[in-house]
């Protein structure tokens, strides 16, 4: 039964890129390595990278096929949220996976997302770093502290029903993603949080799988003072709108 379902399902992997020339090639190789007998397509939404990301994607198309790797570029940087919308428009699968191109989301976890979805029939499977089997590598104490603080605050105020709000490695039923994304307005970190909180409020069935997160841009703190203010504003926004 599950096998038959697996045969029918198609997974569209949406990967937004900006200057990910090397990473996108590595990512595509690893995706093909870890999903040998799954019907999928990789949709690269490139926001006009000046480093030649699109040329590399075209070379990859030559190797893996234009039907497996779709390049849906946009002229300039237009934001993450709209990148997903753009990729979604071109997705032909009945499931959509959203992942980052920088290899902080390792394709080796894709089979566990798919398996979890098949086992539970979930609308959304979200990767979580904060359970047994998951974890983070490459964060200093300050980064861990802000992450924990932000998480406790969000859990206490929003009751989101998932353990990892800002992680963005997720698998969605395509119709569910289309439904949620139309009502999401936030940007950056808050975008991912808003997606999952809105999904919880709408009563969608959400499951979690452990993932590990390797931060390769070590030393560059992604959560500075202004990001914390943005986060708090986002939290407040979600409190009054969801």
């Amino acid at each position: 039964m599950a096998e038959q379902e697996k045969e029918r399902n198609k997974y569209s992997l949406i990967v937004p890129t900006y200057n990910e020339r090397l990473n996108i090639a590595l990512l595509v190789y690893l995706i093909f390595k870890h999903l040998p007998d799954v019907d999928f397509e990789v949709i690269v939404v490139d926001d006009g990278s000046p480093d030649g990301t699109q040329e590399v994607v075209k070379e990859l198309q030559g190797v893996y096929g234009e039907d497996r790797i779709l390049l849906r570029a946009r002229p300039r940087k237009l934001g993450l949220g709209t990148a997903y919308c753009h990729g979604l428009k071109h997705a032909t699968g009945n499931f959509v996976v959203i992942m980052d191109a920088d290899l902080s989301h390792h394709p080796k976890y894709l089979p566990s997302f798919i398996r979890k979805q098949l086992q539970t029939g979930a609308d959304i499977v979200t990767g979580t770093r904060y359970v047994k089997g998951g974890g983070v590598h490459g964060w200093n104490l300050m980064r861990k502290l802000t992450s924990r603080g932000a998480n406790v605050l969000a859990q206490t105020l929003l009751w989101p029903g998932v353990s990892d709000l800002t992680g963005s490695f997720r698998l969605y039923k395509k119709s569910v993603l289309e439904d949620i994304i139309s009502s999401v307005v936030s940007k950056g970190y808050v975008f991912q949080m808003e997606m999952i909180v809105r999904a919880t409020r709408k009563g969608y069935h959400i499951e979690e799988v452990p993932i590990t997160f390797v931060d390769r841009v070590f030393g560059i703190s992604k959560l500075g003072g202004s990001e914390i203010v943005e986060y708090l504003k986002g939290l407040l926004y979600l409190l009054v709108t969801t």
Partner: peptide, 17 residues
């Protein structure tokens, strides 16, 4: 307390690197 416990039990994965 939750932040403290969270920090102490923060799951890390050096092997993954």
């Amino acid at each position: 307390l939750m932040v403290g416990v969270g920090l102490m039990t923060f799951p890390t994965c050096p092997r993954e690197g």
